[in-house]
Computed example of a mutant assay.
Amino acid sequence: MAATTKLSPYKAEFLKAAIEGGVLKFGSFELKSKRTSPYFFNAGDFYRADLLRAISTAYAKTIIENGSSSSPIEFDIIFGPAYKGIPLATATVDKLADLDPEKYEKKCYSFDRKEAKDHGEGGNIVGAPLKGKRVLIVDDVVTAGTAKREAIGKIRKEGGIVVGILVALDRMEKLPAPSGDDSTPMPSAIGEIRKEYGIPVLSILTLDDIIGGLKGTGVDDDIKRMEEYKAKYKASD
């Protein structure tokens, strides 16, 4: 895939790695919502060392880029919800310390257990204690938002302060309407979380980034299908 000038270099490199590594696929995929999507992104496929390096670098550079913005997210701990979020959080902390040790080498990570441990140290949380700490959640995508709400609940129960969420991909897709009518205007899951908790939700890539990054690479049919999908399911927020 040729590089694009429409994305920042780290986003273009991440998109290239996701496609070449088979993490981002194009075709016809049935989602949990029963919609048929022309693309599918599975962060669980970043299991190879070079791909894990690619996604942790992209997460880290998104955080660093946000750090120089007018409203940076200040955090003490990166939290990875079980299970996919665990390697993402740990690898991102390591990459941040590698890229900017002066600012990030003392940052920590934590993750949760699906079931509380009833022996040894016990509890639901592994890694840095969350009490009184500012916590940034790192995960793959937000689908319905259920998993992120559970993570926020666990962090708050431990006394942590959730300051934001960072995901790999924002599908920019509206939630299914209760009536089942796809023509009904609806917000996205990310938009609902922003509104409900009053926290920023960042992403490495959006659907617009994927479409823009693929233009000029000879995959016009895939681009067209994604543009049609976006037009049909675009969120109202």
Rank of each mutant, 00 (worst) to 15 (best):
P9S: 04
K232I: 02
E65A: 12
G22C: 04
D208N: 13
M1H: 13
L7V: 06
K157E: 15
E74H: 14
E115Q: 15
K95S: 02
F26T: 00
D237C: 11
D94M: 14
A147S: 15
K107T: 07
G218H: 01
K95A: 08
M1A: 02
T206Y: 06
I73F: 07
L205T: 01
I86H: 12
Y104K: 03
M186S: 02
D118G: 00
A151P: 10
V23D: 04
I125R: 09
V138G: 09
V142I: 15
V126H: 03
T146H: 03
G21S: 10
P101D: 04
D237T: 09
P87S: 08
P129I: 01
D208P: 07
L96N: 06
F79Q: 10
A54S: 15
Y59W: 04
A231Y: 03
I86Q: 10
G67S: 12
S183H: 01
T57M: 12
P176H: 06
T146P: 11
K234H: 10
S69V: 00
S236M: 11
K25D: 11
P101Q: 04
Y233P: 04
T36V: 14
Y39A: 07
K16T: 13
D181N: 15
E196G: 01
A43G: 15
G191P: 08
A12W: 05
E228Y: 03
K84W: 12
P72K: 01
A189S: 11
G160T: 06
V93L: 03
G123N: 06
V163Q: 05
M186W: 08
S70E: 14
A17V: 00
S33A: 11
K232T: 11
I199Y: 02
G27R: 07
A3K: 13
S28M: 04
K157M: 12
K174V: 10
G180R: 03
G67N: 09
A3N: 13
V162I: 10
V163M: 00
I19N: 04
E196L: 12
E105H: 08
L169W: 12
Y197W: 07
D98Q: 15
R134G: 02
D118T: 08
A144Y: 04
D94S: 15
I223N: 11
D140W: 09
P38E: 04
K131I: 00
M1Y: 08
V135K: 06
P129L: 04
N42Q: 13
T92G: 04
G191K: 02
K215V: 12
R48C: 02
A2F: 11
K107Q: 00
A144T: 15
D209R: 07
N66H: 11
G213F: 12
M1Q: 00
G216E: 10
P200D: 11
A144Q: 14
Y104F: 15
R225K: 15
K157V: 07
S68A: 12
L99K: 01
G67F: 03
K95R: 14
M226T: 10
I210P: 14
A151F: 06
S179F: 04
K154E: 15
P9V: 03
A128R: 07
